[in-house]
Nucleic acid binder design. Structure first.
Lengths: 211, 211, 211, 211
DNA sequence: ACGTAAGCGAGACGGTACGTCGTGTCTTCGG
DNA sequence: CCGAAGACACGACGTACCGTCTCGCTTACGT
């Protein structure tokens, strides 16, 4: 996968120093636009090349598949957004009130998942990752886990403050409220709302059984 | 979508009474087999037709897409499995020990998700459902929700027994342990084990905060 | 070929006495109309059946091919025209002036060949006959030769009158003026006119060499 | 039609300078071979492509129809034969004896029409030309008329020599012996022989009426 | 008069070929 | 010497007809 940093053992990339930055950007833009317009399955490499004003070979030279192009385009989009947002931290706030902090972050996540600009490509990537293990691995590693790690950090801090039982595994704990939201979004099993995410946090923190 | 009960407003199906049961079965078998053998993306309608000994048109006559064929084939597989299992109830056991009951069911689910016979087609359908809302809707309605309803029933019973707080919404509550498992399976975010599902049940029932 | 009267040695026709005259007529009409409208190659048996309000099998029951249907339809058209024209003889007039008689008949032929009602089907049949020897044989036997025989008769009469050399073979002689006209019509090698057919008769009767 | 020289007003051909000569030749060969083997109607574009080891698209890129492919293949065959024959003139011999010269050429024509190598494709093209005016036009222009022009030349020479009446139109005169032969061949109206063509020349030159 | 067997309209079926589109490779040519 | 342009072999698409095969349903015999 092109995303890897280390040199692939097989055929290596051409000289990256001579690469046209112009083309790279145009391809990212075209790919994201097309996925938004016609959906992932109808987005073709030929169309991306045509829209980007680029030869097909220029795409095949640097990426191995449509999914690969889109994945890098999406990563790039994220980086750009991050830079645009300046140094605004992605860390989860730590006001001392764990429930409130988690609810706030999940509400922000709800908003983000509803942003149509991100929806089409991220949904496409998630779907491809379900079926294509290689891409899925990269998707999780590069995009998903870094986000989840923020929850791990906040939960550890809560453990130190005594708000979470010390024997709880934060990496599993975060799934109690993150995964339900993810599933509702991915599989349209049910709509989501602020109320819903708030409830998730309450249930997760205090459990279902009577205290 | 062929799965719909109501007559479609657009072009209607041909006379279903004259339909060849033989062909229908052969197509289901071929579709499931091929998805298992070469994966969903490389499964083509031409190959299904050839393998089933059927004209392509016979597929296009009754289904609107590859995804539609596979969905029905999978539904049919489920029905057959259900019938084969006779009246053996799918209900979640109710021994009075809620945690034990849930852990047992989730362990069984883990086993099922690992069964390669079911994995390829269900993964394919789930992925398609992520990106194709119409199919996703049917997938959820016909396959997912009926299974989830069983948890709702068991949780309600637990509420009556006083094992779950009465103000808890069972439909949301079940997501605390089902969705994390689903996400690990779908997105390969992390491997799953009996330990993991046991932990999920414990966290969900008793919460993360100190009691 | 269905046109044959004698029972074919192989599979025999179904009971002809129960045949639906209504369907037969409707099929002839539909076939001729369609050939006129969309041309022979785009005329399909399915379309003929649909247009005639007839099941496909009713066509396959009585005819062996599209060409066969059209041939019979055209023969029937000719018979109908003949009957409509009453007993008006098709014989070539014999006024005693051979050249004038031939010119008159050829002028009538020119008119007929230009009648669009006849053009499409007869052109289609002629073309099919070029490539399909079996049909070509029937076409020539049933349609072409009977017409040519009329010229043979007239030329023989002229031989008796001393207007044609007695050693001339009339069957060959008629081709001197009939075939050129046929070729111009069939192959669009050149347009035809009354002048042209008059010239043909003159050349044929008196030769090219100085007298 | 691809044969046209002028740029078509509609969609234009792709860049002809990059065209694969190899493919072109292989397609010609495959087309002619297949027409010879299975006949024109059973010759499919798919089969031509497969036999030629070529993608279907490469055929559709350069030709508009099966007939068009075959026409060019046949024209090419003629050109190759012409080149192979070197500068050997195609002109009709002029020994001074017009009748003998014509008889000789017609006898050669009879032989050529019987050559199975030429028969299948030329018959197929002629048939197609009967029904498809556009192709017919090209067929006549490129193949038929150039041959007929040779007769025009010889007849004019005969006129200068006084062997043909000066008021005779050579373009019409040649049809007296060429068209009958053509019709017998095309429509199987009757078999042909050297005797027959000899007779045609005699009748045509000296007429049917007593001298 | 009444089955019963045929022709009939209808149309689903297994196939073949169509003409188009996209893939990934390869070659040509211009900046 | 990279990159745009695009021709190429390949293969799947979804459609159109082919010719065969049931389906009921008349319709007309032959007992």
């Amino acid at each position: 996968m092109s995303v890897q940093k280390s040199a692939a053992p097989g055929k290596t990339h051409p000289d990256a120093t001579r690469r046209s930055e112009r083309s790279r950007r145009a391809i990212y833009d075209a790919a994201l636009t097309l996925v938004g317009e016609v959906g992932y399955p109808k987005t073709t490499i030929e169309a991306i090349a045509a829209r980007a004003g680029v030869g097909k070979q220029t795409i095949y030279r640097w990426w191995s598949s449509k999914a690969d192009v889109l994945l890098e385009a999406f990563l790039d989009l994220g980086e750009q957004a991050a830079q645009a947002a300046g140094q605004e931290s992605h860390a989860i706030p730590d006001t001392g009130d764990l429930a409130a902090d988690l609810k706030a972050v999940l509400r922000a996540t709800v908003d983000e998942l509803r942003d149509p600009k991100f929806e089409a490509p991220s949904r496409a990537l998630a779907a491809e990752g379900v079926v294509n293990e290689e891409l899925g691995r990269v998707f999780v590693t590069k995009l998903l886990e870094p986000s989840l790690q923020l929850y791990v950090d906040r939960l550890r801090s809560a453990q130190e403050a005594g708000d979470i039982r010390p024997d709880v595994d934060p990496r599993i704990a975060l799934e109690l409220f993150v995964s339900p939201l993810a599933q509702r979004w991915l599989q349209h099993t049910a709509p989501f709302s602020y109320d819903y995410t708030d409830t998730l946090v309450d249930y997760a923190l205090y459990g279902l059984a009577p205290r």
